[in-house]
Design a protein around this nucleic acid. Sequence first.
DNA 1: ATACAATGTGGGATCGATTCCACAAATAAA
DNA 2: TTTATTTGTGGAATCGATCCCACATTGTAT
Lengths: 328, 328
Amino acid sequence: MVTIKEIAEMAQVSRSTVSRVLNDSGYVSEEAREKVEQVIEETGYVPSQYAKSLRTKRTKVIGVILPTIQTETPSRIVTGLGKELEEHGYQILLANTNHDKEKELEYLDLLKVRQVDGIVLIATNTAPNLIEKIKELPIPVVMIGQEAENVMYVSYNDYDAARTLTSLFIQKGHKKIGFIGVDESDKAVGILRKQGYYDEMQAHGLPVEENWVQKAVFNIDSGYDAMKKIHTSEGVLPSAVFAVTDRLAIGAMSYLKQEGLRIPEDVAVAGIGASEISQYIHPKLTTIDYQNEKAGEEAAKQLLSCIHSKKVKEKMILDYRLIERDSV
Amino acid sequence: MVTIKEIAEMAQVSRSTVSRVLNDSGYVSEEAREKVEQVIEETGYVPSQYAKSLRTKRTKVIGVILPTIQTETPSRIVTGLGKELEEHGYQILLANTNHDKEKELEYLDLLKVRQVDGIVLIATNTAPNLIEKIKELPIPVVMIGQEAENVMYVSYNDYDAARTLTSLFIQKGHKKIGFIGVDESDKAVGILRKQGYYDEMQAHGLPVEENWVQKAVFNIDSGYDAMKKIHTSEGVLPSAVFAVTDRLAIGAMSYLKQEGLRIPEDVAVAGIGASEISQYIHPKLTTIDYQNEKAGEEAAKQLLSCIHSKKVKEKMILDYRLIERDSV
DNA sequence: ATACAATGTGGGATCGATTCCACAAATAAA
DNA sequence: TTTATTTGTGGAATCGATCCCACATTGTAT
């Protein structure tokens, strides 16, 4: 490994001068600069990141904590993050919790030890101890997908999106509308989307039967099961079902098709997420696009500006887009 | 930031002793150890990674280069990598090339600068300059998904898998079998799978018409287009189509359904990859499972053993599993 | 002419750990 | 009792950069 000292000797200047050339700082004569650059070129020298970090306290690494990398939302976010960070010479250090909430906390500590310059948390919950920990951290943290007080975040307009979708059903003449949601520990998906649904129903004076509303977890099978529960329950059957994610919607459709029910004639279905397959399944799924990549980019921007200029905490709520297709 | 020096002062010992406690090395009296541990506990001290790395030349970070994070194969591999690496205290530094082959080379250099302890390359090609660069690197590199001489790798049995799938079509009575492949710069997917198909056809004395074989790129629409080309071409139409990935198969099915053709009665379809939706589309797709997560785990194991004990270069070819469903 | 700023360079301290080595004390072997 | 050996500790060098500061040289204003 060639070091700055060797470069200095070869170029017959001091380490300081080499450092100045490297960092474009202070005064350096044209002559010295050329000499140093030539030697660097010849040797293929690259400065040691850790020596640099040790002095400067900067690693140019951003930690990203996510619940899984196997679904589209986080993947897209990470892609967006990567794009923006790469342009500024930052790298991503990945921390996959596999949906383990304990690990979210652990990784927050671990990334601190790893001395990342900032952290992006693709959040699944806003538990008080999590929020506390974030506030205690000496480095900036941006949450994506959830909102919380006194924390930087980029989130989606879950409430309005849910109202929009519910409203679409109603426009199409549906009055009995079911809902497949998730646990309320996930505020964005579990509470806001459900609230949007309830409020829109109420705004139109439509009743919500208890058996129309089911709770699922984040996977396709769970959507299937929830639809089954709705279908096999006692009361009246809904003519439409709003699932809070595309995957749940796909599971629900899978059940309906299996039962010989037509979509959307017998039961209309819609989801949220604009997953890639949503347009290749039959019928094409009506859904909402959340611009996840943009969320990643924006989070990166927020983080970088916070790292560089200590700007005030910012929050950002992204817009959404309704994609009307054939399932409604 | 509390440092080892402060800990030493507080515990009234030398920095050396603190270091010994930290690393469980050398002799430390029970008394001193307890004192130090207590102070560490109280202060919440964690040693600086970069200072450590500067001396030890170890970062406990593995670089992962991948073409995209938005498809299932790389996501699963990364999950597998993460699991195995985490157990040994390693972290993943992500480098997303977005399918840019230039960046593959760039990142190889960048990760060297970042001084990762090893690199996992989820490979899309085996271009000579890439292989050269890998061999030149002073740190161990494991490729996943492609094979090459004198390089460590974990790959899949693409050739046999393709033969198995082709053979399945033949067993089911198909004689006219089409093929949707990809560019040959991707040796594993572009060449081996195609070769398996050709060889199996030939072994059964079945001819392959030129218009049955189409080249696509890695996305669903491209599968649609390829199927369209096959369908709208002059010659005889195949009664079955083997697509080299599930996504291509799904695109092909999408076209067939749109044209009112029944699957598998009119045209049978199969893919490779065991993507999650393959079992939720209609009809359920026959495919091959490649155990991507295991590939990630194995690659991590190889890398770690190489880092720790300088073992000889190893190669590993993983087994596959045929998943017979309704599309054939 | 002198004073003062701008330009250019190198030495040395520093960041926060590890690790070698010298040395002291306690214990075992001769 | 003397000599080895084990156990325990701290000082100092080191890793490879940055950066402050002192100092030299040149140019400009007074």
